[in-house]
Write a protein that binds this DNA or RNA. Structure first.
Lengths: 245, 245
DNA sequence: TGGACTTATATGTGTCTTGCATATATGCTT
DNA sequence: AAGCATATATGCAAGACACATATAAGTCCA
């Protein structure tokens, strides 16, 4: 089932032009909302994988560190700055890009939903894409992406990369305070629990979660309460490490 | 304190020869013995960092996956096969190699001491180098290397890479059964505890460790006991996952 | 040869964490 | 004003864990 147009494109591409691999960064920009994980994917308008969806990425500049390249892509492609960003994994199967050898150093970013939606709207970008993880726990494997109920074709090995990001954040949530990276600066314990449940893909005991978070020493009460919620308002908290740094 | 010979070498090196970065793999080959961590380091006999010690590594082949390249280096440089090997992190600061832009994808291997000592002896290589971790827990940072009591100069950013490997294995030991990778196929609970204490850099409670390991379901009694140990012999165990796979 | 020594293995106990249940508080809605 | 939904607080039992004690089983040495 080879698209003839794509076949012609590949023929004309001189794979021997370069001896060394190209090195890129690709970004998994994640947020949590409505008990779903979402990522930024961009439709490809050129071969290969024309019409499929791909992670934002780009070549690494000549005098640019890997992290600087990731931050540049984050800003250029998504309009985001100052968010959690960490190296994920490096993918380099020889055939992962049909044009030439491309090794990609992937990073993942965690963003508050409101922040990323505003930033994308400013750039006139498509909305985020819903992720579905067809495996439990930290088993790992590719992830599926949906928009408006339809499953999307993912370019290159980007389904694997998305899967690695979900696996990493699931593992990390159990020992590092990163859930708040997906929330606004102040939030209720209920919101934080929803984020954890979304990331882990399972329900958590409310009281245990509450006690565990409060006794961790990572949270700080703001003395303010949410309003207009149709029920008793909960106190707003912030993460201490945010203000301590 | 620039070595004039090295300065001349760098002048003559044409950094503009290539537009794309070189991509290499570098390996941290770790073992545990005598309550110390040890790694394989090779003395450099050419500039840059002539006389300093470096991790075994090499360029990634044109049609070779990253993991294949790591396995090739593991075999060529250390004579090792079939050991635990996992991607660690990718380092790519623009100035990390003074010759040209080099991005290195690092892997770490965990090996039984006897196996690696035998393999190195066959290749006529220097013995392993003792590591000293000047930080606690999973704080992270560079690691120091010693041979015969003298601290070694480490080439490039290899002290950082070693530090990342120790940090990774310390974290991983708490939730994944990887301690046995540093032991022979059968071992006593005492040996396993010594490995854990070596990696973590702290003493552990004997009874708790024992019960935790036995109730984890990962261990299997062999029905054999150690001999000639000068005290009551302990039963030998093996890891189930080794035989189940 | 037998007792001291060293380590393995088994059992008990108090503390802390965690899941589950109950009770009360509070703001919004009707 | 009553009902509702959720927040917050407290109690309790089961399990995990550190620490302590007791017994077992080899080696070493007088």
């Amino acid at each position: 089932m080879v698209d003839p147009e794509e076949a012609r494109f590949l023929e004309e591409y001189d794979a021997e032009t370069f001896d060394r691999p190209s090195v890129t960064v690709d970004l998994v920009i994640l947020t949590a909302s409505h008990y779903q994980l979402w990522a930024l994917l961009l439709p490809r308008d050129a071969h290969p994988f024309k019409g499929a969806w791909a992670l934002p990425g780009g070549l690494i500049g000549k005098n640019e560190s890997l992290e600087e390249a990731a931050k540049r892509v984050l800003n250029d492609k998504a309009g985001l700055e100052g968010v959690f960003l960490e190296q994920l994994y490096t993918f380099g199967e020889p055939g992962r890009d049909p044009r030439t050898r491309v090794i990609t150093v992937t990073y993942y970013a965690l963003v508050d939903e409101n922040q990323v939606v505003d930033a994308l709207a400013l750039k006139g970008l498509d909305p985020l894409v819903r992720l579905k993880t067809p495996w439990k726990g930290e088993a790992g494997g590719p992830v599926e992406a949906y928009e408006a109920g339809r499953q999307l074709d993912l370019a290159f090995d980007h389904a694997e990369i998305l899967g690695m990001a979900v696996k990493r954040i699931r593992g990390k949530l159990n020992y590092a305070p990163i859930g708040f990276q997906l929330l606004p600066p102040t939030f209720t314990l209920r919101q934080l629990q929803a984020v954890h449940e979304t990331v882990l893909g399972q329900r958590l005991n409310k009281d245990s979660f509450r006690r565990r978070m409060l006794s961790s020493g990572e949270l700080e009460a703001t003395g303010e309460w949410e309003t207009e919620v149709g029920h008793r308002p909960a106190e707003l908290y912030r993460f201490k490490s945010l203000t301590a740094i």
